[in-house]
Design a protein around this nucleic acid. Structure first.
Lengths: 215, 215
DNA sequence: TAGATTGTTAATCGATTAACAATC
DNA sequence: TAGATTGTTAATCGATTAACAATC
């Protein structure tokens, strides 16, 4: 029951969640850290260390009950809670996000869309009316919005974030190609960076022998 | 001039690239590792170590010439090269990607779109005709496609990747919520995972004092 | 009970940071 | 030359892996 959970551990949690969901759907009842490690390409010790940051979910001599473990990780990730969410920037990415199934499935309820483009304001996108950002602050307060998604141009990203935080948002999911900072948790997605890393590997991995995959 | 460049270093390169681009656009001519570290929230030693994986770009007693350094990093990332690219899966994300400016700007030329949906085949999206995946293999060979983007459903992701590799693709950018493996470099974007991490932090960071931002 | 596997402490490894000689 | 800052070696720190006693 560690006090400080490292970023590395946190970033592995979604992978555990994904893999255990798969096992659970396949009807698997129990799994040992050794087998889980084999399947996920991790180390069994690491898996036990990771889980023990949050408590003893296993049973000595038996292993882990898949369903129980999955439930625990789901709770740890907070996926069982609901977060009202707004999206600012209804361009290509914004529209894709507005239609993204992953949101609702994980408790993120999109209730507001904002964009400065006059041709978009008032129009319906993914069943929601696009509003002007000047209405955002009031909207966030009135609808108890806790998460803000930024899919606007780079230039506006930081000021949108600032406004969101001022209005009371508890977390930000940023897709603009810039590191947004805020006094609340921020996830910067950086699709461009990911593309650069791929580009790097395309240029360099040719030398190596079978680079398989990363992460 | 290190031999082995760690994943951690590779993932910092895009950030250097972004920041140096900004400085260069702002007309900054030179920068020391110390000042760069301050601006980026990194350690000066780390920055020098990172750059020296690829060669000595600086000048003792002076610092780094922004333009030169930027050019070097651009070359290291391979952004100066061109890669013909196909996108498989023209749903919400696929469409957003087809219209994504980041591609062309970084040498990724999208030349083919594929989807199984009959209502999409033959239609134009982002100036390209959507084709049936059965034509993909031949298309990749004929157009010397080196990068495949997967924005299809999870179930098909791995088999699409296999087919891409068999056809000669050199790298894969995967958006399906599953870890695709291949004998070529793969970048798994995992937007869902990023959302889970945000969810985790929303649930837990409330305890902490001003978590600012991560990465 | 014997076997298996966890939870947890200890050892190892790698990445980050500090220090400093080289040199512009 | 003196001052500044790199390139690089050494020290530190944290994360991963191994080991093993606890226990189901």
């Amino acid at each position: 029951m560690n006090r400080k959970v490292s970023e590395a551990v946190i970033r592995r949690l979604p992978r555990y969640f994904r893999h255990l969901s798969m096992l659970n759907n396949a009807g698997v009842k129990k799994i040992s850290s050794r087998r889980l490690a084999e399947q996920m390409g991790l180390n069994a010790s690491q898996i036990r260390q990771d889980f023990n940051c949050f408590g003893g979910f296993g049973q000595q001599g038996y292993g882990y009950r898949v369903e129980t473990l999955l439930g625990n990780i789901k709770a740890i990730l907070g996926i069982d809670e609901t977060h009202n969410t707004v999206i600012v920037g209804v361009g290509n990415i914004g529209r894709a996000l507005a239609n993204f199934e992953g949101f609702a499935a994980n408790g993120f309820v999109i209730c507001g869309l904002f964009d400065t483009a006059t041709e978009l304001i008032g129009r319906e996108v993914a069943g929601l009316t696009v509003r002007h950002p000047s209405e955002m602050k009031e909207f966030i307060v009135e609808n108890r919005v806790s998460v803000g998604v930024i899919s606007a141009r780079r230039t506006y990203a930081q000021s949108i974030a600032d406004e969101m935080v001022a209005a009371g948002v508890k977390g930000i999911w940023n897709f603009a190609p810039i590191d947004v900072t805020a006094p609340v948790p921020v996830e910067n997605v950086h699709m461009n960076d990911s593309l650069y890393v791929l580009s790097y590997k395309l240029t360099h991995d040719a030398d190596d022998t079978a680079p398989d995959n990363e992460e």
